[in-house]
């Protein structure tokens, strides 16, 4: 009866798990694109008119209707859209014919710009914001969580708990607004942020993003601090912690090595889950600080009802969120190999 169990978990099992996850990502992405396409192109009202914009002449509207193949059944149109995504597409804008290369998300009829191009120019800003902020919130959040689990029951823990609670309860645009007014407006410690390309001037890039990073990070950090603290406390109550204490292992090692390890997996899972909300936060941050990222562009596109841009951006953001989730799942499985056994 005392044999080995579950030995297939490491080699083949793990690769299989990653493969299954990858297929899942593809399916999810397809499904999301279908949903988004259907929702946005089966809206009430004249789609061609909406897409073209309010200032379009009837002729232009007719042209857009042709481009979108509004006479074809929906699935044909969707298939056409997919085709453009994979193979590229040609658009005729009145006189000239524009070629839209491979990952073609369509054409903005209001600005005559290709959506893919538009997104590519805005993407670095948003990625700078989100990734920089993520580094900040992970360090701040996990650090605070560990500290308050470590100082459990003391004054410092209560203070930290209070601060994180306030962080959780403050909407990102309120924090950002207050930070901007206080730091840039009143104290004049920093100039009002102005995006600078990383490749142009890394120092200025970081300086200018400092405040947006901080506003976005503070809220997420609060959530992580709470999760880290509670996961650690949960782990500290587990039997194996008792074992190490009963074997004379010091408290530093018990907390730093064993309890912290138990908080790993939940933190990874939360980080993936929060990518979606962080993207939402990024939209607000970009709008607030006037950073020319995807979020601000999306708000603009929504304002003027530029459908191809909206659809393209929602798809791209969805793509990143799904990928982030899948990556986290794999990381999670690495952190907790027992998951793969399932």
């Amino acid at each position: 009866m005392s044999g080995f169990m579950g030995n297939g978990s490491t080699g083949n099992g793990f690769a299989g798990f990653v493969l299954r996850r990858a297929v899942g990502v593809l399916v999810t992405l397809l499904a999301i694109s279908v949903i988004i396409y259907v929702v946005f192109y089966v809206t009430p009202g004249n789609v061609a008119q909406i897409t073209c914009g309010p200032r379009c002449s009837p002729a232009q509207v007719q042209q857009v209707a042709d481009q979108l193949r509004l006479d074809d059944p929906l699935y044909v149109r969707y298939w056409h859209f997919l085709e453009g995504l994979v193979a590229g597409q040609d658009y005729s804008t009145g006189t000239a014919v524009q070629h839209c290369p491979a990952p073609c998300l369509g054409l903005s009829y209001q600005s005559d710009q290709q959506v893919t191009e538009l997104i590519l120019t805005k993407l670095p800003v948003s990625l700078s914001l989100v990734f920089g902020s993520m580094v900040m919130w992970l360090i701040l959040g996990v650090g605070t969580g560990v500290l308050s689990a470590w100082r459990r029951g003391r004054l410092s823990e209560r203070v930290l708990t209070g601060v994180t609670l306030v962080g959780v309860a403050t909407p990102v645009f309120v924090i950002g607004l207050v930070l901007m007014i206080v730091v840039c407006g009143e104290l004049e410690l920093l100039p009002f942020p102005q995006y600078v390309n990383l490749t142009d001037d890394p120092e200025q890039w970081a300086w200018n993003l400092l405040l947006p990073w901080l506003s976005l990070a503070l809220i997420e950090a609060a959530a992580f601090a709470r999760l880290t603290r509670s996961s650690m406390l949960e782990t500290l109550a587990e039997d194996h912690i008792r074992t190490f204490r009963a074997y004379g292992v010091g408290e530093r090692s018990v907390i730093g090595r064993h309890a912290l390890r138990g908080a790993f997996a939940p933190v990874i899972a939360l980080n993936a889950n929060n990518v979606g909300s962080a993207v939402g936060g990024a939209v607000l941050t970009e709008t607030l600080f006037g950073l020319p990222g995807i979020g601000r562009e999306l708000v603009h596109a929504v304002d003027v009802v530029d459908l191809p841009v909206v659809v393209g951006m929602v798809l791209v953001v969805g793509f990143f969120v799904v990928i982030a989730n899948a990556l986290a799942d794999v990381l999670y499985a690495v952190a907790d190999r027992r998951v793969v056994l399932a």
Binding site: H240, R242, T243, F244, H258, R261, G262, R338
Partner: peptide, 14 residues
């Protein structure tokens, strides 16, 4: 030294 009842939960899973 002490040996506990439930050997699975008494060892660190990680």
């Amino acid at each position: 030294a002490m040996v506990f009842q439930d050997p699975l939960s008494s060892l660190d899973p990680y």
